[in-house]
């Protein structure tokens, strides 16, 4: 029988447009910038093409999930910390923002940055005991955090208890709301992409690769993990703060399972470790989930099955696949 294998070759233009050489011609330049421009412009144009208010609202929600997915991907693939507790970040950020807004009457544009930073600090502090843990253990503990916080709020009747905090200010209008979250997603997307390529990002990857060697190099891994968790929690809390101002309400449903599971599904489907992938995944998954809203919890079934199928059969994800197709020729050759 004739045996064949798939041969992959880098496109010439990829090799030529490496580094500074991209400036040599428009062709190389556009090869590099086109995908980024398409993404950025696509996201910016989105609110205009949405048919009605409902779908414009969906755009905001998508962006918040994209932020969460970004935070999950950053922690999981650059630090090796798999966090199943995205809802915890949303909840902390949301409650802080809501309290600041209703108690002190601060405007959303003040509360959101404060909630982001304070929330990130709070999350890092609460997660600090778990930082030495790896793999399964960290996942398990983070899975329990949102549930436990929810129970504490119910039990002690904190912050309005099961009723939540009502009457949170909204954004001035829906355009501001959408472009604010869109700007945040783009900012954090390109921010984290830049971060992971700096020397600090390299240390993060080293912690994931081999923490013993990092210790032997005279660096405290807990310190670097704490920094990374702070950054990731910041993204989550930012999302939480935004969501509170979008829905004008903060309550224990901020700890809902959706916030933990959709970002993971988005990351897996979009392609883990690429940072763009999770954002893309969120833009695919969340609208579908909105379409399925009338089926109730069936949508959770849907995206857990999608998640499972992707992780088992196509674990590379859309983004990695797309990158490969973009950068390489593939052809079958005889062995």
């Amino acid at each position: 029988m004739e045996q064949r294998r798939k041969e992959r070759l880098d496109r010439g233009v990829k090799v030529r447009s490496d580094g500074l050489y991209a400036l040599m011609s428009w062709r190389e330049l556009s090869y590099l910038t086109l995908p980024r421009l398409v993404l950025i412009l696509g996201i910016i144009v989105l609110p205009f093409v949405m048919p009605n208010m409902y779908w414009q609202r969906v755009i905001s929600i998508v962006c918040i999930y994209a932020l969460l997915a970004l935070s999950f991907d950053f922690l999981a693939h650059f630090l090796g910390l798999v966090s199943l507790g995205g809802a915890f970040l949303i909840g902390v950020g949301g409650y802080i923002s809501a309290i600041l807004n209703t108690t002190f009457g601060l405007s959303p544009f003040v509360t959101i940055p404060i909630a982001t930073i304070v929330g990130a600090a709070v999350c890092t502090l609460l997660l600090f005991p778990c930082l030495p843990l790896r793999g399964v253990y960290f996942a398990i503990v983070t899975l329990m955090y949102p549930l436990a916080l929810k129970r504490v709020i119910e039990a002690l009747d904190l912050f309005g208890g099961t009723n939540g905090i009502l009457g949170v200010d909204s954004f001035p209008n829906s355009w501001v709301e959408q472009y604010f979250v869109i700007a945040m997603v783009l900012l954090f997307l390109f921010g984290t992409r830049r971060l992971v390529n700096t020397d600090l990002g390299l240390v993060f990857r080293a912690v994931k690769d081999n923490d013993q060697a990092v210790k032997a190099s005279g660096m405290s891994i807990t310190y670097y993990k704490a920094i990374a968790v702070f950054i990731a929690s910041g993204m989550g809390c930012l999302g939480g703060a935004c969501i509170v101002h979008i829905f004008m309400w903060s309550g224990i449903s901020l700890f809902a399972l959706d916030f933990s599971i959709i970002p993971i599904a988005a990351t897996v489907i979009g392609g883990g470790g690429t940072l763009v992938g999770p954002v893309l995944g969120a833009f695919i998954l969340v609208p579908i989930s909105e379409l399925l809203r009338e089926f109730g919890t069936l949508r959770i079934v849907f995206y857990s099955l999608a998640l499972m199928a992707f992780i088992v059969f196509r674990s590379e994800g859309i983004m990695v696949y797309g990158e490969r197709k973009y950068h390489q020729f593939e052809r079958w050759v005889k062995v």
């Binding site: 020397d199 600090l200 390299l202 990857r205 080293a206 690769d209 060697a213 190099s217 660096m219």
Partner: peptide, 17 residues
């Protein structure tokens, strides 16, 4: 115990950090 996913010289960037 090198950092397997990094190039050799990047392995040294980490202790140098």
């Amino acid at each position: 115990r090198p950092y397997y996913s990094l190039p050799a010289y990047k392995n040294l960037v980490i202790p140098l950090f």
